[in-house]
Design a protein around this nucleic acid. Structure first.
Lengths: 190, 190
DNA sequence: CGCCGAGTTGAACTGAATCAAGAAACGTGG
DNA sequence: CCACGTTTCTTGATTCAGTTCAACTCGGCG
């Protein structure tokens, strides 16, 4: 089937009973987005938790004429506006595909049903929460204790090939500096 | 009973079936810490999700001679080293009571049992995750888009009375600056 | 009473922002 | 497939917020 990557990813954490997995798969929705396409718009409510089969997603706020990219999700990981998804309230930021992107998504309603019906549902929810939380935690600490240059180096080592596809200006705002500053950092370290 | 605050807090989100609540309460552990006491040490595994009945907790890393306070949890909210709790791996930071503190804690094992036995268990876990994640998300964005002065103002409006009990040096590292810089900001805005 | 940690203030320095202008890369239509 | 316009990246000059180092004040506590 086409869910190989997702299954492999989940099985890193624990075995999946065939029955639960079948049920889970039956609720999965494949969603494709082309480069630059909006995946979620400010004002809407996030209705999915998604696994990124391929592609890269950027989350950003529009702030006085500027965009701040506060999160970048890469393939082989979960992606969702989790705060909105959980609280069922509108997001105040946008999400867009940085490259052509394919997602496996499960809707809020279906996930609720998964929770009540199967053990694997709870597992998925928990794993998504865990991954997203841990990622945020690390990043927040990095913002507090690392310099911009260190943060850039972290990106280089964490996602060596992937960041090639990401325009410098997005990386810059992701690590909390201006494109000019990142350009200078690049020159300095090469 | 003594769980009034916790019950009220949880009921903000949804009603609690009496039976589930009884079971939940039976697994609750009250833990008290005096000012400055360590609640969790680097190298240990977090074994609890806790509700802060009263008090303030500070999470901090020791980084080349310095302490960076990266999280502050106030009363009437959840507190846990959630990344460690979830992954069962040691923390690389410390947690300490900023004031005398009383917690209602549930252990990892008991929470797992709650998950399998009651609906309210899943709810607790989910709510804790939600609250913690949303808090991190907000804060991360604030670190990216606000100035140090704005971040301090946010603290003032969010926790007007509580931050009085927190020494300036901890607040400073929480908003990502030195105590000297915060001291100057204070003078400027008063 | 004297000490010690916490907060304040000053002066010099530094990393990054801002403003500005030119170069390179990109994609869209002819 | 090239030409043009737009966006992205680079580089320079100036400014500014915050750091660092250092000295001094204040308040509580042994």
């Amino acid at each position: 089937m086409e869910h190989t990557k997702l299954k492999q990813y989940l099985e890193l954490f624990s075995p999946l009973p065939a029955e639960d997995w079948e049920f889970f798969v039956s609720r999965l929705l494949q969603r494709s987005f082309s480069k630059k396409e909006l995946i979620l718009q400010a004002g809407k409510v996030e209705n999915y938790v998604s696994f990124i089969e391929s592609g890269i997603i950027r989350y950003f706020v529009r702030e006085r004429e500027k965009e701040i990219t506060f999160e970048i999700a890469f393939e082989n990981s979960f992606a969702t506006a989790y705060d909105s998804f959980l609280t069922r309230t509108p997001v105040w930021y946008d999400a867009a595909a940085l490259t052509d992107t394919v997602l496996w998504s499960i809707s809020y309603e279906d996930l609720q049903e998964m929770y009540s019906r199967t053990a694997v549902g709870n597992r998925i929810g928990r794993l998504a929460a865990e991954e997203l939380y841990i990622k945020k935690n690390k990043r927040q600490l990095s913002l507090l204790k690392d310099t911009a240059e260190q943060r850039y180096m972290n990106l280089l080592t964490d996602y060596p090939h992937l960041i090639q596809f990401i325009p410098l200006k997005y990386l810059a705002s992701y690590i909390g500096i201006t494109p000019q500053a990142l350009s200078r950092i690049r020159r300095r370290i090469s």
